[in-house]
Simulated assay, not measured.
Amino acid sequence: MVENRPFLAILSHLILILGVAMVALPVWITFVGASHEAERMLQTPIPMWPGDQFFVNLKQTFWGSGLTGTSIAPVWMMMFNSLLMALMIAFGKIAISLLSAFAIVYFKFPFRMGFFWMIFITLMLPVEVRILPTFEVVADLGMLNSYWGLTIPLIASATATFMFRQVFLTIPDEMLESARIDGAGPMRFFWDILIPLSRTNIAALFVILFIYGWNQYLWPLLITTDADMSTIVVSIKQMLEAAEQSPEWNIIMMIALLAMVPPIFVVIAMQKLFVQGLTETDK
């Protein structure tokens, strides 16, 4: 019998509301700052309620008219760069990880597990650790200020390979035998059976990798010197350090607000598949 304890129910709800408020407060302040004039954001105390300049600031920020005096590109161009970079990283990581996990699980070749552990060990070598040799290789290949330079060094993923390997190991061997009896080759088995069975896992991983690619800061900062190739996350820092002028907080807040939109949209659009992909234990 579950005891009815109103005090504990009220206390738990208050704690949850406090947690939501702590997470939502920075987003609310960003929205409020994006709706005021620049002069109001320099006054104290900072406003806590929206102003009437939201759409004016949105137009100036998105098309670049409010970025005069800075060396950054219009926000629509930076959002396009960030979106393309995030999509290329997400799709590239998923494609390579699916193929590598497929080879490790279903093909017998010498040192198969050795190669798997070599892939797994790369978890200890993120791009920040190997950034100097990676930058030198990219520069020697002439991929500076290019989408290939932004994405290719970040595509390999030991985490995704390990995840898909574990998924493939849960698939019964009878499916492989049935596919062989029906005359299906390895790639037919991979495309018609493994990919559909891994759909939710692919969706969950896509959400994680998209946000990972969208939030990249250090690598795009090093690899791009052309303003037209800059990403929106890098531009926020550049706006804060605009030379010989005080930061335009209303524009900075609007850029930060726009930078939140694509990841939020991806999470909301794929929420159901994301949860299923993280909670499924069998096929």
Rank of each mutant, 00 (worst) to 15 (best):
F102N: 14
Y212V: 13
R5S: 13
W214N: 02
L14P: 01
L16D: 00
T68K: 11
N145P: 01
E174W: 12
P172L: 06
K108Y: 14
T122N: 04
I121K: 02
W191T: 10
A184C: 06
L42T: 01
W249N: 07
M229N: 07
Q43R: 13
L141Q: 05
T122W: 05
I121Y: 07
T170L: 12
K59G: 04
A256G: 13
V127H: 05
D52S: 12
F109P: 09
N215I: 10
I232G: 06
R40T: 08
D52Y: 04
I10A: 00
G69I: 00
Q60T: 15
A269Y: 14
I232P: 12
I195A: 14
N215T: 10
L197N: 14
V207T: 09
R199A: 15
S82G: 06
F206A: 04
D192W: 15
I29F: 12
L125K: 03
N145I: 02
I10W: 04
F189C: 05
T68A: 15
I202D: 10
P47V: 02
L278T: 06
T134R: 03
N57H: 13
G213R: 06
I211S: 06
M260W: 14
T61Q: 08
Y106D: 04
L83R: 01
L132D: 10
Q43S: 08
K237W: 08
V75H: 02
F62R: 09
L14W: 00
E177M: 11
F91H: 10
L84N: 13
G149D: 06
L278M: 15
L144W: 03
A259P: 02
K59R: 14
F115K: 07
I232D: 00
E37K: 15
P172D: 06
N81F: 01
V267P: 08
P133V: 07
A158N: 02
L125V: 12
L278C: 12
D52W: 12
T200M: 15
I17T: 02
V105W: 06
V27D: 05
A86F: 02
L169Y: 07
K237C: 00
V32R: 05
A242Q: 03
E280S: 10
E177Q: 04
I193N: 14
F190L: 09
M253V: 07
T170W: 03
I252L: 03
I268T: 12
P50G: 06
A179M: 12
T159Q: 08
E128C: 08
W214A: 01
S157R: 00
K283H: 11
L67T: 15
L222T: 03
W249P: 03
T231H: 02
S82A: 03
M124S: 01
P153Q: 09
F7I: 00
T231E: 00
K237I: 05
F109M: 04
P26H: 09
G66V: 00
N215H: 09
I208D: 08
T122M: 08
T44F: 08
I152P: 02
Y106S: 15
G149C: 05
K108D: 13
F189Q: 06
